[in-house]
Amino acid sequence: MKKYKLCLTVNGIDYMLEVNAGETLQDVIRDHLNLTGTKTGCDSGACGACTVLMDGMAIKSCLVLALQAEGRKILTIEGLAQDGALHPLQEAFVENWAIQCGYCTPGMILTSKALLDENPNPSGDDIRMYLSGNFCRCTGYQKIIDAVSSVRPLQGGRHGKK
């Protein structure tokens, strides 16, 4: 199998890897880099569990070939807390019981981050709409919406844009 060189930045660290053409960004993150906080749910772009930020945009890492991410900056859930301090969204998810099984949580938090970066004061309906590419089968969404709502106006400027 032909291998291709791939350079990308994940959570602030530059990587140079060798991948097959058919490997996805999700494969790179989970299998090459062992960052298993990015979850795999359906492998077809339906569930949103594998959402990461690519150059600040929420994307589904199972729908992107690794080679498409050449030169991109990726943020996964592992890169969100800074110096041991949780990101305000992570805090809010914990405090509001917005987490049950936790499997959708990394994708939900990162999608929410993309939303707040675009729109620091989203309404409940804005949040519902923006998060409607991410399934949560446990919480019924209410506590997730509560958690995201509680992070307004965006606190912790130090987390800023990655």
Binding site: D43, S44, G45, C62, L63, L65, Q68
Partner: peptide, 26 residues
Amino acid sequence: ILAGGQSLVPLLRQRLARPGLLIDIS
């Protein structure tokens, strides 16, 4: 041709499309 990949990547994954070459135009 691979553009955004949002339709093509799942097809590749499920082996429903098996091209010899991907031309990434993105």
